[in-house]
Structures are given as structure tokens and as C-alpha cells.
């Protein structure tokens, strides 16, 4: 005998169950999560990104940085994320409310970048690292991004102020300089904006750190 309709219903019901449970329920619980205002300091967290940094996020997405770098700090005692200095506290849902898309990542070929803006705020370090990671981190497997930079002859007024200070094997040909393009500048603004360190009730900083 045929039980086609029964099969059909079973197929629909089973997927409907997790569609309700893992799609609608998270949307109900977290879909309207907003910023938190600290009752003492009136500080609002998290803040939306500035325009330049937001443009940089688009380059981060397009170049596929997420495939080697996570943006999530696991809780203390679970893995060594906090011990490695990748964050002062675990990250929680509220940290990500402005992200489109959310780029949590699933692979750590390179280190976590949740708080790279706190850990490394030096512009020239970021530029050199993007131009060729071997300059700052010899032995890294991160690809160089020469196409985010322009190699051009030094003008009559001398080297540009934003030219990279490159030495040895990494230096451009004599009479030339390497300057970051707009995309490189935006990408570095994005990286410098990565900070998930607000003091939240659901993820408090340790007292001495929170001040």
C-alpha cells in the first residue's frame, strides 16, 4: 500500500520542528537585542562603527579574512582564548548586534581578531603586516596583499608622509615608495575598530580591569 501523504507530512513536520526551534526561537530571543546603557557611567555599548571602518568591513568580507580569523572569545577555562590575551572577557550575543554579516569564523589558521583594535593600534604595523606579513611575523602563512598598496615613483617633493617604512628585501626599487590605497586605509580602520570590551551585566569585566 502507498503511504505517500504520511511520508510527506512526516518530512514537513521534522524540518518544521528545528525551523521553529533553531530559527524562530533565536530570532525571538535575540532578534531585538539592543545596546546596553551603563546605569553608573551612562556609557552606551556597543557603539556602531564609523563610516571608514564600516567600509573596511566590506573589504574584510570580500577578501575572505573570516576563513582564517575568528571573532569570538570563548569563556575563561574553555580553551586558552583569554589566557592568550585575545580578550578580557568572553564575547556574548550583544557584542555583535551591529555586524552585517556576523563574521564569527570557524577556523584559527591565524589568531582571533575580536580585540585586535585593542591589542594592536599602530597604523604602520598594520600596513606593513598587510603588505607582507613576513615583515612583522616571519613564518606566518598569511598571504601578502600587495594589491591593497600602490608602488609609485617618489614625487619631486620627496617621499609621501604615509609611505611604508620598508627595509631590506621588502623595500621597493630605488626611487619608489609603497603607499596604502583607500581600501588598505579602510581595512586598517576596521581592524582598529575591533574591540569587544564593554562591561556588560551578562559578561562583566573583572573589577580591577573595569575600574
Amino acid at each position: 500500500m502507498s503511504y505517500g501523504p504520511l511520508l510527506f507530512l512526516g518530512i514537513l513536520f521534522t524540518l518544521a520542528s528545528s525551523w521553529v526551534g533553531l530559527v524562530l526561537m533565536p530570532q525571538r530571543q535575540l532578534g531585538a537585542l539592543g545596546q546596553h546603557t551603563d546605569t553608573n557611567t551612562a556609557a552606551i555599548y556597543p557603539q556602531a562603527r564609523g563610516g571608514e571602518a564600516q567600509q573596511g568591513a566590506e573589504h574584510y568580507r570580500a577578501l575572505g579574512c573570516v576563513y582564517c580569523h575568528t571573532q569570538q572569545v570563548r569563556p575563561e577555562g574553555y580553551g586558552a582564548d583569554i589566557a592568550r590575551g585575545w580578550g578580557r572577557r568572553r564575547t556574548v550575543s550583544r557584542d555583535y548586534i551591529h555586524d552585517k554579516p556576523v563574521m564569527l569564523g570557524t577556523m584559527r589558521t591565524g589568531p582571533d581578531l575580536t580585540n585586535i583594535g585593542e591589542r594592536q593600534s599602530d597604523y604602520s604595523w598594520h600596513y606593513k603586516h598587510l603588505y607582507n606579513p613576513q615583515i612583522t611575523s616571519a613564518g606566518s602563512v598569511m598571504p601578502p596583499y600587495p594589491f591593497l598598496f600602490e608602488t609609485r615613483p617618489i614625487g619631486p617633493t620627496g617621499p609621501s608622509t604615509n609611505a611604508l617604512a620598508l627595509e631590506g628585501a621588502f623595500a621597493p626599487a630605488a626611487g619608489h615608495e609603497v603607499v596604502p590605497t583607500l581600501r588598505a586605509r579602510q581595512l586598517v580602520e576596521y581592524l582598529r575598530s575591533l574591540k569587544s570590551s564593554g562591561d556588560l551585566p551578562e559578561a562583566p569585566l573583572k573589577k580591577e580591569e573595569a575600574q
Binding site: G10, F13, A16, S17, V20, M25
Partner: peptide, 13 residues
């Protein structure tokens, strides 16, 4: 919708 489906899905099954 959520409460309804928790009751309705198994009942329908």
C-alpha cells in the same frame, strides 16, 4: 506560533 507548534506538530504527527 511557538507554543502552538510545540503542541500541534506532535499531535498532527
Amino acid at each position: 506560533i511557538l507554543l502552538g507548534s510545540i503542541l500541534l506538530l506532535p499531535a498532527a504527527a
